[in-house]
Design a protein around this nucleic acid. Structure first.
Length: 259
DNA sequence: CCGGATGTTCACCT
DNA sequence: GAGGTGAACATCCG
């Protein structure tokens, strides 16, 4: 998925539907409806609703309506298609992502146009009135104090905490590795043990990673991305990168400058 | 053919 | 309670 940067792109695309009224709901996949929602409920509650806003918290896209809120998640391969065109043409893991058979959820609007979630692997989902309180502060707007709170008093590895969406919302595997690489911090450091300087450096590195990768076009455009292979070398100092499982995810990091 | 991959949730361990 | 692990979802790629 789409990490924060991609979902922000989706949000901007979805903003084109603000003000429109839902004429019909396409929900062919019961599995895609999460947290108690069913295709029947989605159709009943959203038909006739008017979209009033498109917001993003971390990787969650929220459509506000004059009825229930709609929460959209995109898993690793989900994309959004608004009025027939997708804002991101090719995701790494779905070169052929344009099969309409992969449309898992859609809203058709009065007067034409539609918003569709197309997700080959079905790792995403749609829910009504998502519990937004389960998400921590958005990584694109987090303050140093909020970051400190999110990492405080934990012996868990730093990277595992950065990926915990209830502590900090929006970073995925690639952005977490890129941010730690830029900050010069080991992903294995105990999360609660950063000194004030390291914390400030991490905060700045997350901001820089989001700014730079956002400008380049997404989470997969990091400096670390080309060397995320076995035997890859650090673009900064040439050391051979380590490949570990941290927080359940494959992690590439430089044992020389990430300490 | 097999292993992994921008993610989340849950059951089951320690 | 806190963390960790593995499974599940389904497709593509090396």
């Amino acid at each position: 998925m789409p990490e924060l940067l991609e979902v922000e792109t989706y949000r901007r695309a979805a903003a084109a539907t603000v003000g429109r009224t839902v004429a019909a709901v396409h929900a062919p996949d019961g599995w895609f409806a999460k947290r108690g929602a069913t295709p029947e409920m989605l159709a009943a509650e959203l038909t006739g609703a008017r979209i009033t806003a498109a917001r993003r918290i971390g990787k969650l896209l929220v459509l506000d309506t004059d009825g229930p809120r709609v929460g959209l998640r995109f898993g690793m391969t989900g994309r959004i298609v608004v009025d027939g065109s997708a804002p991101i043409e090719a995701l790494i893991y779905s070169s052929n992502g344009d099969d309409p058979g992969w449309d898992r959820f859609g809203l058709q609007f009065d007067g034409g146009g539609a918003l569709v979630v197309r997700d080959p692997r079905r790792l995403g989902g749609v829910e009504l009135d998502p519990d937004e309180s389960r998400l921590g502060p958005d990584a694109a707007a987090v303050t140093v104090d909020q970051l400190r709170e999110g990492l405080a008093s934990s012996a868990a590895p730093l990277k595992a905490r950065l990926l915990d969406q209830s502590r900090l919302a929006g970073l995925g595997n690639l952005l977490a590795d890129e941010s730690l690489w830029r900050a010069g911090l080991s992903p294995l450091r105990p999360a609660g043990a950063l000194d004030p300087g390291e914390l400030a450096g991490l905060h700045a590195a997350i901001g820089a990673a989001l700014a730079v990768l956002g400008r380049r076009g997404g989470s997969h455009t990091g400096d670390l991305q080309p060397v995320r292979v076995r035997g890859g070398h650090c673009p900064r100092d040439g050391a051979e990168l380590r490949r570990d499982q941290v927080g359940g995810r494959t992690t590439y990091w430089c044992p020389r400058h990430q300490v």
